[in-house]
């Protein structure tokens, strides 16, 4: 569960508290209460249990996505894959 999962911000709510984030085609809401830096549409964040815990620096995005894609390619019983898909499921369903 330490792993979190990266996603890209599609839009940000007016009050700035929540973002719509896309994870490999799946759109979910993620809270921005504790993100470590200001974020904008197009930025990538690391979601952990429905909270963006940090903004991913632009220079690390490609490398980070490549690692997660490799981990997600594992079969169903794989613990890392299970943790990552669980992190996506932890983000909110858009209204």
């Amino acid at each position: 569960m330490c792993l979190g999962v990266p996603g890209q911000i599609v839009s940000i709510a007016e009050d700035g508290g929540e973002a719509l984030v896309e994870f490999w085609g799946v759109r979910r809401t993620v809270r921005l209460d504790i993100v470590d830096e200001p974020v904008a549409v197009g930025d990538y964040i690391l979601n952990h249990v429905g909270q963006a815990i940090r903004r991913i620096p632009p220079e690390s995005i490609a490398e980070t996505l490549a690692m997660y894609e490799e981990l997600l390619a594992a079969d169903d019983g794989d613990p890392m894959r299970a943790d990552i898909t669980g992190e996506i499921a932890g983000a909110g369903r858009p209204a």
Binding site: R31, V49, G50, Q51, G86, E87, G90, G92
Partner: peptide, 9 residues
């Protein structure tokens, strides 16, 4: 019992 993936759920 309910399974959740984040406290918010």
């Amino acid at each position: 019992i309910h399974v959740i993936y984040s406290p918010r759920q």
